[in-house]
Design a protein around this nucleic acid. Structure first.
Length: 893
DNA sequence: CAATTCACG
DNA sequence: ACGTACGTGAATTGT
């Protein structure tokens, strides 16, 4: 059974949080009347995301009346809340609208002179509890956790206003080892700087918790203070005793105030959709308005007025197909599909058209195969606007069509403009261009509630609005692209690459399921043997996959030394276990178990589950608009992290085979591409010389760093060290990181770095130049003008800022390497076609390309691939490509 | 849904 | 004094 719910919201503290959560948007979020709306937007989000889904029976938002001076606290302590910085005007002006917003969301506002919001909440929470309600409090102020009981949960916002931490008596016990009542005593000892009342001198949270675990409360503490050991703290406690008791009174929230509104009047009425529309219109909440419109359309809320300002479409049938050929020279095209995976997701409708002539839409995608549609889709001269060209290409391939003439892919353009603000969702990406589209979620729901609306009109008008949106987005997006000097990157790299990737994904790579199944059986046996051995050594059975349980065993029961801790407990990561292996044989067995379990679950079971039975192939998706550097990523499954470093794992590559008998797998990889890019962009003559002379770069680095003669033999340790330094340089070096990696002291690491920078002075100079560039422009870019914004470069926090600085150094390197292989992929594909090779590209793994090819084409393919790859981009150093082939991916080494 | 671990470049 | 090496995805546990 569920109790009735009473929701109590601390209006002031949440509004305050809301204002500062979106403070950086302050100047952007201004309504047409000149009103700042940042706090309103965030507060509205909170009401939508937290309150409405909760559907409480009673609800109230409590506000402070006045400054707090008229309250019992102000009378008790005249300096109460003094010294608070004045509430910004930009915030104050939003207050009346906040109250109206609350009302329109169906909640009561409440304030009362002489009471603070806390006291209103405290009193109603007790009243509600007594009346048998489950009480939920939401606040930004941790002090309210003193109100928690079995029936009263206090939710405190953590970051922003929708990220919440739930305080129950059990949780408070766990987190602070305190009862809710002791929260008051804690405050009594520490005081409150923001409310401007002191506690005991030099007592902060840590000390307060320690004292309370010993003395329970301040009454008991002061009763026993004479017995306390002499210390500075004891002196402070004695001197500040009065302050502590005063602070306790100030910190205590009233639970017995006299209130004017009976509980029964707090009934939650839900959103008043009729009246909230003009309110949102006045504030220019376009996204909210679009959402309400979608809800109306899908029949989830009543609509009294039939206000259909939708983009019109004509239902397409067999009878009006000829209209399609009259659409002219530019259209938007969109096939709607279910889920993320366009390789097997169901196609539920499509739209084609433009704002001038009109849009045609149908739920029946087989209409696309008709001659009329085909003649437009496959016509290069009819320009197409799309969202996610690669997905659309694959969907059309599934229908046997070859989409041509693609002009504008909003998803690709949006990614190039800003890699960070890219969630690949059309409706959110469109907002930055002031185009407001209904989110898919509002039409289809999400998660378990996903459903295609029964009314076809709803689906088709939704996808029509997407197509129409693409026309509104085209000019502003292209114009920004041009301002960024990224037109070439889009037109000549990302867009053609999408076609190459679509073909690779659609082709897929063949795998041998029997091999995986056999290997899986072998692994299962060995895993269970090791597991038994571990249980015997441990003297008990436990969940070996649980780092928590393993930590308890190793570090508590067995008493092994703790080498590293994580946020939540002991670390049991490989580097830790390797250090412990000598001390207990069980550790080595755990490492073996981990390795085999990983192979079995991720690579045997994982891969077997994504083989398409109809062609025995795996069809990954390369995400082209995800990484912050310009690399691709691969999902469903990830084919860019198939094991390689251990022989046991590497053998799994045997399962990846050519799709035709008599064919081979060929792999071609760039050698040291990132260091070559580094030598190029920094224009460091010493490093360039090493590459121009075809030297072993790590050995050459070792000679430089260790001051050896040009022809000296480099011992393996020196080479390994130099290699680590080279890696460190590419990652945006720090002495701390290098020391950690090499297991040397920071001073030694710093020494290496200093020497390195002396030997390669232009690298050093570039590292400073690129950081300056980032600070001045707020972004860094690659050789193809791919951008990465680094707002944190100005952060006050050292860690945050340092991270941005390393990113400033690393991204142009990693990103330029990504540019190069992308260009190579396009050129290789062109060369394959031009030379009429049957061979095809299957995979890209950051610096290597994998192909399948008839045996008799191998020599020609090798020649074409290596020459195209190493001439893809002309750098000031040569690019080097190695190629290998064999019967399987494993053998292409 | 976050945290941990481990696979790759 | 500060205290992380850069970029990813998947499986698993545990709240």
């Amino acid at each position: 059974m569920t109790n009735k719910k009473l929701l109590l919201i601390d209006g002031n503290s949440l509004a305050f949080r809301a204002f500062y959560a979106m403070y950086n948007q302050l100047d952007r979020m201004i309504s047409h009347e000149g009103l700042h709306t940042n706090a309103l937007v965030a507060f509205n989000n909170f009401l939508d995301k937290i309150v409405d889904p909760m559907a409480p029976d009673l609800a109230l938002v409590a506000w402070d009346a006045g400054s707090g001076k008229e309250t019992h606290r102000g009378k008790l302590f005249p300096e109460y809340k003094d010294g608070r910085s004045k509430t910004p005007e930009e915030f104050k002006e939003q207050f009346p609208y906040l109250r109206e917003m609350v009302m329109l969301h169906g909640l009561r506002n409440y304030e009362q002179v002489g009471l603070e919001a806390d006291d209103i909440i405290g009193t109603y929470s007790r009243l509600g509890e007594a009346a048998g309600y489950s009480v939920i409090i939401v606040t930004g102020d941790q002090d309210l956790t003193q109100l928690a009981t079995e029936n009263i949960t206090v939710n405190v916002t953590k970051k922003g206003v929708t990220d919440i931490e739930s305080f129950t008596p059990e949780y408070i016990k766990e987190k602070f080892n305190l009862t809710p009542a002791q929260i008051i005593d804690k405050k009594a000892l520490t005081g409150d700087t923001s409310d401007n009342y002191p506690g005991v001198t030099k007592v902060g949270e840590k000390t307060a918790l320690k004292l309370l675990s010993e003395y329970k409360n301040i009454d008991n503490l002061y009763a026993n203070i004479d017995a306390m050991k002499q210390s500075k703290m004891k002196e402070n406690l004695i001197n500040d005793q009065k302050l502590a008791f005063q602070a306790r009174e100030l910190a205590t929230i009233l639970t017995d105030a006299t209130l004017e509104l009976p509980l029964a009047e707090l009934e939650y009425r839900g959103v008043d959709f009729e009246n909230i529309v003009p309110f949102y219109e006045n504030l220019d909440f376009k996204q909210q308005l679009a959402k309400i419109k979608a809800l109306r359309k899908s029949g989830q809320i009543d609509s009294t007025k039939d206000q259909d300002d939708d983009v019109r479409f004509v239902p397409l049938t067999e009878n009006n197909l000829h209209s399609i050929t009259m659409l002219g020279s530019k259209v938007a095209v969109h096939i709607e599909f279910v889920g993320d995976n366009y390789h097997d997701g169901e196609m539920i409708g499509f739209v084609i058209g433009n704002p001038e002539i009109g849009y045609y839409a149908s739920r029946d995608v087989s209409l696309l195969k008709t001659d009329e549609l085909k003649s437009v889709i496959e016509n290069e001269d009819v320009l197409k606007n799309v969202f996610n060209v690669k997905a659309q290409l694959v969907l059309f391939k599934r229908l046997g069509l070859d989409l041509k003439g693609v002009n504008f892919d909003f998803m690709l353009v949006a990614y190039l403009l800003d890699t960070v603000a890219n969630d690949n969702v059309l409706s959110t990406l469109a907002q930055r261009f002031d185009v407001y589209l209904t989110p898919d979620e509002d039409i289809y729901g999400k998660g378990a509630k996903f459903a295609i609306p029964t009314d076809d009109h709803v689906v088709l008008s939704h996808i029509t609005s997407k197509a129409d949106g693409l026309f509104k987005l085209e000019n502003p997006a292209f114009s920004e692209l041009n301002q960024h000097q990224q037109t070439h990157l889009y037109t000549d790299i990302e867009l053609p690459l999408a076609f190459v990737l679509a073909e690779m994904e659609y082709q897929g790579i063949k795998v041998n399921p029997e091999y995986l199944t056999e290997k899986g059986k072998d692994l299962s046996e060995r895993i269970s043997d090791i597991q038994s051995a571990i249980y015997i050594e441990a003297g008990e059975e436990f969940n070996l996959n649980s780092p928590k349980q393993l930590g308890v065993l190793l570090f508590e029961k067995m008493g092994l030394p703790v080498i590293k801790k994580t946020k939540t407990g002991y670390s049991t990561a490989v580097d830790v276990l390797e250090k412990l292996a000598a001390q207990a044989p069980i550790v080595d067995h755990i490492l073996q178990y981990r390795q085999l379990a990983k192979l079995k679950s991720t690579y045997i079971d994982g891969l077997l589950s994504v083989i398409y039975p109809e062609d025995s192939k795996i069809h990954t998706r390369f995400l082209q608009t995800l990484t912050q550097t310009g690399r691709l990523s691969s999902v469903d499954p990830n084919l860019q992290n198939i094991p390689m470093r251990s022989e046991e794992g590497r053998l799994l590559r045997t399962a990846f085979v050519p799709s035709k008998s008599g064919w081979k797998i060929l792999g071609a990889d760039y050698s040291q591409i990132e260091l070559r890019v580094l030598a190029h962009v920094t224009d460091d003559k010493n490093m360039q010389k090493a590459f121009l002379n075809g030297e072993d770069i790590h050995a050459e680095t070792a000679r430089a760093v260790f001051g050896l003669a040009d022809d000296a033999v480099v011992d393996p340790l020196m080479r390994r060290t130099a290699k680590a330094v080279n890696f460190g340089i590419v990652y945006g070096i720090s002495d701390y990181g290098l020391a950690n990696n090499l297991g040397i002291s920071r001073a030694e690491a710093k020494n290496f770095i200093d020497t390195y920078f002396r030997e390669f002075p232009q690298i050093h100079e570039w590292m400073n130049t690129i950081k300056d560039f980032a600070r001045e422009h707020g972004y860094v870019e690659t050789i193809a003008h791919r951008r990465r914004y680094l707002p944190d470069i100005h952060a006050k926090n050292f860690n945050v800022r340092s991270f941005a600085e390393r990113t400033a150094m690393n991204s142009p390197i990693q990103g330029s390497a990504a540019d190069i292989i992308k260009i190579a992929m396009i050129k290789v594909n062109e060369a394959l076609q031009k030379n009429h090779l049957q061979a095809r590209m299957l995979l890209q793994v950051h610096d290597e390309l994998i192909f399948e090819t008839p045996v008799d084409e191998i020599d020609e393919l090798t020649e074409i691939v290596t020459s195209v790859m190493d001439s893809a981009v002309a750098l000031d150093v040569p690019l080097k490509v190695d190629a290998h082939y064999g019967d399987t991916w494993y053998d292409a080494k």
